[in-house]
Nucleic acid binder design. Structure first.
Length: 292
DNA sequence: AACAAGAGCAACCGCGTGTAC
DNA sequence: TGTACACGCGGTTGCTCTTGT
């Protein structure tokens, strides 16, 4: 076991201590300090022996989880930004519940946090709409209503604070400036979210760095991966041959054009994820029920 | 003010995969 | 090559906080 010379306890003694009662439940401040202190000195990994050596009566799994999800210095807590929401929706539509994979594209966010976000916010909307979160209707709603709406809100938010240039990366949304916080690690490649009207939007990358051809198949650094990701996706609200008949917005009975013309119902009260208010939900429920 | 219900989130569990021996 | 152990992932649970009545 002591491959890296980390194991501090002889085997016999170790197995004895395995018998001792392990702590479960919420971590105490003291335990947190112990873990932080030990990792600062010895580094992470080999979690079972780490737990023993650090004097923590916890499983290695528990230590790893606590470190990765909470104690790690680069972990971010707090509200999921609009940009992050957009990214989560897009990546989930691409990969499904591959939380760790999605988390790789959101620096500082953990798979657990993204998973919780999805379950509490996104699935809540599906529940309110009385449809399955994996149903085509709901996916279409996300893709053709929610996500364009997020882009609009990002544009609006950035237009309102467009003069702030410190610590941001500037991109362009149609004719409007769009900014992403630096902590998205864009690697100097400007992101472009271009709008071609009628909520058509395309996320592009104007980076001069060559995009990795296997950015979805292999693990690369968050820096290039994030940029590569945007270089590869093109979210178009135009009629999609896979989803729509040419030239109209009708899909599965959902008249998106009609929905969006009645724009007030898409308005949100605050900066949260409440894309759909009560009226929206009622309207959408009518649409869903009608088509079921 | 007290209680109930719901939401949010940290932590745990089981299982599949990788790796060392 | 087989086995044991460690790691990591996704699903689930349960506690705490917030909101509504």
């Amino acid at each position: 076991m002591d491959v890296q010379g980390r194991d501090c306890v002889p085997k016999a003694q170790s197995s004895e201590e395995d018998q001792m009662e392990l702590r479960r439940g919420p971590w105490t401040v003291e335990e947190d300090f112990k873990l932080i202190d030990y990792i600062a000195t010895h580094g992470e990994g080999r979690w079972n022996s780490l737990a023993r050596c650090a004097g923590l009566k916890r499983t290695g799994k528990s230590c790893r989880l606590r470190w990765l999800n909470y104690l790690r210095p680069d972990v971010r807590h707090g509200n999921i930004t609009l940009e992050e929401q957009l990214l989560i929706l897009e990546l989930h539509s691409r990969w499904g519940n591959r939380w760790s994979k999605i988390a790789q594209h959101l620096p500082g966010r953990t798979d657990n946090e993204i998973k919780n976000y999805w379950r509490t916010r996104v699935q809540k909307h599906a529940k309110q709409l009385k449809c399955d979160v994996n149903s085509k209707q709901f996916k279409d709603t996300m893709r053709y209503l929610w996500m364009p709406r997020l882009v609009e809100r990002i544009q609006a938010a950035n237009a309102a604070s467009s003069t702030s240039t410190a610590a941001v990366t500037t991109a362009v949304v149609g004719t409007e400036p769009m900014v992403f916080p630096d902590d998205h690690h864009l690697g100097g490649g400007a992101q472009q979210v271009t709008s071609s009207g009628n909520n058509n939007y395309t996320l592009e990358n104007s980076s001069t760095t060559a995009a990795s051809s296997d950015s979805f198949g292999t693990q690369v650094s968050p820096v290039s991966d994030f940029a590569d990701y945007y270089s590869n996706i093109s979210i178009n609200h135009n009629p999609n041959p896979n989803c729509f008949e040419a030239g109209n917005y009708h899909n599965n009975g959902l008249d998106f054009q009609c929905l969006e013309q009645n724009n007030p119902w898409l308005d949100t009260v605050d900066g949260s994820d409440n894309i759909f208010d009560a009226e929206d939900l009622y309207f959408l429920q009518q649409q869903f029920n009608f088509n079921m």
